[in-house]
Computed example of a mutant assay.
Amino acid sequence: MSKPFTSVWAREPRRPRSSGLGREQIVAAAVEMLDAEGLGSLSMRKLGARLGAGATSLYWYVANKDELLELAMDEVWGLVEVPDPDRTPWREVATTTAYGLRVVLLEHPWLANLLGRMPMAGPHAFAMSDRLRRAFVRAGFTGVDVYLASGTLMGFVLGQVIPEIGVRQVTEDGTYDPASMVAVVDRVAADYPEMRADFRQTVEMDPSAARAMAFDFALLCVLDGLAARLAAADVAGKSAEAAAQERG
């Protein structure tokens, strides 16, 4: 049986108690803990101790840990820079948003584990989505294509950054040694000398620079593809209009 949808955003926030501990303070502390210790380390008890309050004080504002995570997610969405689409060309809006989202995800890697599990229903998430929507409307997309274009951009960034977060975790914490990875590739890819050589060059590059270069290249391809779709739709529209005029 399906469970009814619940969300912290489904009700008005409660006023702070006389203790002075407010929801904003709780959310800020939760984000700090998530950044420092990761998703698995967050608990209402530990957060209450961090704030010098009991877990029961937190439950005045949130019903459970999931609601706290919803608030933390939306707080982080508010950090993504999205230019005003009424004053900025759509490609600049999309580019700035993509780079801003990449930075935010890398600085708050726990967020990637919540995507799809937690609703993006907070005010910051809606503000970001609306600016992207208006940018693609001004670009010339119509109907459902507006949201498909926005989803394409968001999906691209997530598809690029989530694996990057995983690579960082296994290399920076010492789980895998790059030199041993090269040795394994040399052995298992013996039949592919060109790819082995390319892999060696990639490993020798600065990892951050290599990932940034890959992101740059792929983002340009995505935006060029969206622009080409707009141009094709414009040509098709003009052709249909010309044909209608000839028939008339």
Rank of each mutant, 00 (worst) to 15 (best):
His124Trp: 02
Ala125Gln: 09
Phe126Asn: 08
Ala127His: 02
Ser129Thr: 13
Asp130Lys: 14
Asp130Ile: 09
Arg131Trp: 01
Leu132Ile: 04
Leu132Arg: 07
Arg133Gly: 05
Arg134Thr: 06
Ala135Glu: 01
Ala135Met: 03
Phe136Asp: 07
Phe136Gln: 05
Val137Glu: 13
Val137Gln: 10
Arg138Gln: 10
Arg138Asn: 12
Gly140Asn: 08
Thr142Ser: 10
Thr142Glu: 14
Val144Thr: 11
Asp145Thr: 03
Asp145Tyr: 07
Tyr147Gly: 06
Leu148Arg: 08
Leu153Met: 07
Gly155Ile: 05
Phe156Glu: 04
Val157Ser: 01
Leu158Pro: 02
Gly159Asn: 04
Gly159Met: 09
Val161Glu: 04
Ile162Glu: 07
Ile162Lys: 01
Pro163Ala: 03
Glu164Tyr: 04
Glu164His: 10
Ile165Pro: 06
Ile165Leu: 11
Gly166Gln: 06
Arg168Tyr: 03
Arg168Glu: 11
Val170Ile: 14
Glu172Gly: 08
Gly174Ile: 09
Asp177Ser: 12
Pro178Tyr: 00
Pro178Glu: 00
Ala179Lys: 10
Ser180Met: 11
Met181Val: 15
Val182Tyr: 01
Val184Glu: 09
Val184Gln: 08
Val185Pro: 00
Asp186Lys: 12
Asp186Gly: 08
Val188Ile: 15
Ala189Tyr: 14
Asp191Ser: 13
Tyr192Thr: 14
Glu194Ile: 07
Glu194Trp: 00
Arg196Val: 15
Arg196Ala: 08
Ala197Asn: 06
Ala197Met: 04
Asp198Trp: 06
Phe199Gly: 02
Arg200Trp: 01
Gln201Glu: 13
Val203Ile: 14
Glu204Ile: 02
Glu204Asn: 09
Arg211Phe: 02
Met213Pro: 01
Ala214Leu: 12
Phe215Cys: 02
Phe215His: 06
Phe217Leu: 15
Leu219Cys: 07
Leu220Arg: 15
Leu220Phe: 12
Val222Ala: 04
Val222Trp: 04
Leu223His: 02
Asp224Asn: 12
Gly225Thr: 15
Leu226Asn: 03
Leu226Pro: 03
Ala228His: 02
Arg229Cys: 05
Arg229Glu: 14
Leu230Ala: 02
Leu230Lys: 09
Leu230Phe: 05
Ala231Ser: 11
Ala232Trp: 07
Val235Cys: 01
Val235Thr: 11
Lys238Pro: 03
Ser239Asn: 13
Glu241Leu: 12
Glu241Gln: 10
Ala242Gln: 06
Ala243Asn: 09
Ala244Val: 03
Gln245Asp: 13
Gln245Leu: 13
Gln245His: 13
Gln245Gly: 00
Glu246Lys: 09
